[in-house]
Design a protein around this nucleic acid. Structure first.
Length: 486
RNA sequence: GGCCCUAUAGUCUAGCGGUCAGGACGUCGGCCUCUCACGCCGAAAGCUGGAGUUCAAUUCUCCAUAGGGUCACCA
């Protein structure tokens, strides 16, 4: 009897909801629905140092916004719960122990310091083979157990074959093989007791009945480890499907990254992209509907979907085509629908009441409000008029664009995006460089608002929102490079 | 660097041995029009290179090249 088709999206709640997560979720969703199966959501929060409290909620909201509803998940439950890995601790430990008993895994007592030293030595020796040297692989089981019992910290590692070749079948590419000497003994349980992705992922996928693992191409190199895990447990293998990676629009088409491209789903929502547009566009990244059809809904895609319609070249995420597609959807909407959309995005009391205090004193008539606040509603700005003011006479284009890029980075890692933090960042950068405050603040004002005069800088940046501000800083950095040295 | 994946215009793609290499974004030109936008019409622009298989390669094989990914107690 064939199993019910089940797929999953397993995001790690380490930051803003990522466009790549939506991309992979989309294909998992569509494949499951096409086959009358289930699509589930699992939260991979096993990295205690990187997980952020509000991230999980934001990810769920974004996926829902896109209409990628899951059948089982941390909020709606399901037969194979819990769906949050941090709540499945005992399950992983139990399974790690099974592997130790079967001699498929072992405790490793090497400290991070020793490992770092090993790596250093390997570098020095010009040894091309990195990875763990398997020092603890053959410790006698009794000795190992005793050391563990005595409280010595350890990790659990998977015993990989030392020679030979691992082969697995990727649904889109056929057989992929890798020499085993390339694979080292992967850590399964970290010394903090949490599992690594490799263990948690395989155990959960099996226990949750996942039949098709549709994930990003970056996982291909470690798939042999996962295959080994399934074999060690004696479990039935899922079908492996590795989707191409979304790419930046830079020269090299590198893997999509927040340094070069807005990757937060929140951003696309903020600039007025409809969820159906984004889903449609993401689908276009690698999937062909057929008959030259480019505009289609999630349901229409589901009807015609098959893996044969996926192409493997890494698709560049092109904002221009996304915007064009959005226009198609927009012109199709009734004016009533559109009115609701316009109001719910920015023209509502909540948003306007954040702006109003910033311009209150600057207004003489009600109509001034509009002139004073346009940049709170724009996606990108036009720098053709005031743009040159981003470059103080005392600074070079290179220096200035570097500052903007650094600012975008610093803002990205902010835990709390607010005007105090922004103030701290920009004053700090001026100070570090020994620049005058005005050499930083005016250029930033132009970059963020394209005007010499604006409401209070950092308050306005706060209201405009992290993603749009980061995008503007990056755009400004590009623009400055086109200016002549003064 | 080792290993792995990928390769049709600037970008997204169709093609699954014989096609004038099709569509879309963008670009350019024109039409519509009070302007702009929309819409419509048209144009420029592509099979990375080299061997091999074949009567015939964009398509199959190999090599090269290029790009990407990956080599963590991150996912």
């Amino acid at each position: 009897m064939t199993r019910e088709i089940k797929t999953r999206i397993a995001p790690s709640p380490t930051g803003d909801p990522h466009v790549g997560t939506a991309y992979i979720a989309l294909f998992n969703y569509v494949f499951a629905k096409k086959n009358g199966g289930k699509f589930l959501l699992r939260i991979e929060d096993t990295d205690q140092t990187r997980c952020r409290a509000d991230s999980e909620k934001a990810i769920m909201e974004s996926l829902r916004w896109l209409g990628l509803e899951w059948d089982e998940g941390p909020d709606c439950g399901g037969a194979a719960g819990p769906y949050r890995q941090s709540e499945r601790q005992e399950i992983y430990l139990e399974h790690a122990n099974i592997l130790i008993e079967r001699n498929e895994a072992y405790r490793c007592f090497c400290t991070p310091e020793i490992l770092a030293k090993d790596r250093e030595q390997q570098q020095k020796d010009g040894n091309r083979r990195f990875g763990y040297n398997r020092r603890c692989r053959n410790i006698e089981p009794e000795v190992s157990a005793k050391r563990a019992a005595s409280g010595e910290p350890f990790t659990v590692r998977l015993k990989m074959p030392i020679d030979g070749t691992s082969v697995f079948r990727d649904e889109l590419r056929g057989d992929i093989s890798r020499p085993n000497e390339e694979l080292d003994d992967q850590v399964l349980i970290k010394s903090d007791g949490f599992p690594t992705y490799h263990l948690a992922n395989v155990v959960d996928d099996h226990l949750m009945g996942i039949t098709h693992v549709i994930r990003a191409e970056e996982w291909i190199p470690s798939t042999p480890k996962h295959v080994r895990l399934y074999d060690a447990f004696g479990w039935e293998m899922p079908v492996w499907v590795h989707m191409p990676l979304l790419r930046n629009a830079d020269k090299n088409k590198s893997k999509i990254s927040k340094r070069k491209n807005p990757v937060s789903l929140q951003y696309y929502k903020e600039i007025g992209i409809f969820p159906e547009t984004l889903v449609n566009f993401l689908a276009l990244m690698g999937f062909s509907f057929g008959n030259d059809v480019e505009k289609f809904s999630l349901n229409e895609m589901t009807e015609v979907f098959s893996f044969e319609k996926i192409s493997l070249g890494g698709p560049v995420f092109d904002l221009e085509k996304l915007t064009w597609l959005n226009g198609l959807y927009l012109r199709e909407k009734s004016q009533n629908q559109l009115l609701d959309d316009v109001m719910s995005l920015y023209l509502n009391k909540e948003y306007l009441s954040k702006i109003l205090p910033l311009v209150h004193e600057r207004m003489k008539t009600i109509t001034d409000f509009v002139d004073l606040t346009t940049f709170f509603f724009n996606a990108d700005l036009d720098y053709s008029l005031e743009g040159r003011l981003m470059l103080p006479k005392t600074r070079t284009p290179k220096e200035m664009s570097a500052l903007f890029e650094e600012a975008a980075e610093k803002i990205d890692v902010l835990v709390d995006y607010n005007h105090e933090e922004l103030d701290r960042i920009f004053r700090g950068m001026a100070e570090e460089r020994g620049w005058k405050i005005k050499e930083v603040f005016m250029p930033v004002r132009i970059a963020c608002f394209a005007r010499k005069a604006s409401p209070p800088l950092f308050e306005s940046m706060e209201v405009t929102g992290k993603e749009r501000i980061r995008r503007r800083l990056r755009k400004a950095a590009e623009f400055i490079k086109t200016l002549p040295v003064q």
